[in-house]
Simulated scan of single mutants.
Amino acid sequence: MTEQTQRGLAGIILAGGRSRRMGQDKAALEWDGRPMLNVIADAIGTRCDPVLVAAPASSQAYAELGAESPLRWITDEQVGTGPLGGIVAALTAAKEAGAAAAFVCATDMPLVDADLVDELLRALTSSPDVVIAHEGGRDHPLAGIYRVRALPVFEALVEQGELLMTNALDAVLTHRVGVSDPRWLTNIDAPEDLHRLRAGA
């Protein structure tokens, strides 16, 4: 933990996606000579402790990186429950570790920066359960801070078979904020996205 790490703030990286459009696991994609997952973990690790990686034990990410990664993997999410299921599993672990909230992001956001965490934290007053980035006219639920007190609501939604993050955000008090650098929110869905981002980096 660095001196800048926020007390009570965990980090959650969602790595359970199937990466159909990419054709290979995105967590293991090379970025600056390292797996993208590790780059993201280092970036948010300056603000978050612990950093948790949510992915089913059956996922490609866990198969490729889990055994060798020093990161803490949370593998007990219900398969097929999407990002919300990963958030529930990892937020439960964050709560058990003593965190009051967690910064949540996806494993395909190589430009994510600690400054994004800081900006969202500044918007986290006592009222909201969740603070997410809102940019380009749309929400970015996988760039947000989630309080552990919202867990019962999210758990109930997963039990009901709810998969949509938009519905999960509507079920709690969510605050949306603009961010100073939209590049932080860039995600990679397909090989052409990766090539374009590498060319512009």
Results as ranks from 00 to 15, higher is better:
Leu37Ile: 04
Leu37Trp: 00
Leu37Asn: 04
Val39His: 04
Asp42Pro: 12
Ala43Pro: 07
Ala43Ile: 02
Thr46Asp: 13
Arg47Met: 14
Cys48Val: 13
Pro50Val: 12
Val51His: 09
Val51Phe: 07
Val53Met: 08
Val53His: 06
Ala57Val: 15
Ala57Ser: 15
Ala61Arg: 04
Ala61Trp: 02
Ala63Trp: 02
Ala63Arg: 13
Gly66Lys: 00
Gly66Leu: 05
Gly66Ala: 06
Ala67Lys: 09
Ala67Thr: 13
Ala67Tyr: 02
Pro70Lys: 08
Pro70Asn: 12
Leu71Pro: 11
Leu71Tyr: 05
Arg72His: 09
Arg72Tyr: 00
Trp73Pro: 14
Ile74Ala: 02
Thr75Val: 15
Asp76Gln: 11
Pro83Thr: 09
Leu84Glu: 05
Gly85Gln: 03
Gly85Tyr: 04
Val88Pro: 00
Ala89His: 01
Leu91Gly: 00
Lys95His: 12
Ala97Arg: 05
Gly98Gln: 08
Ala100Phe: 09
Ala101Ser: 14
Cys105Val: 15
Ala106Thr: 15
Ala106Ser: 14
Ala106Asp: 15
Met109Pro: 03
Val112Tyr: 13
Val112Glu: 09
Asp115Gly: 11
Leu116Tyr: 05
Leu116Ala: 12
Asp118Trp: 00
Ala123Phe: 09
Leu124Asp: 12
Ser126Met: 10
Ser126Asp: 14
Val130Trp: 01
Val131Ser: 13
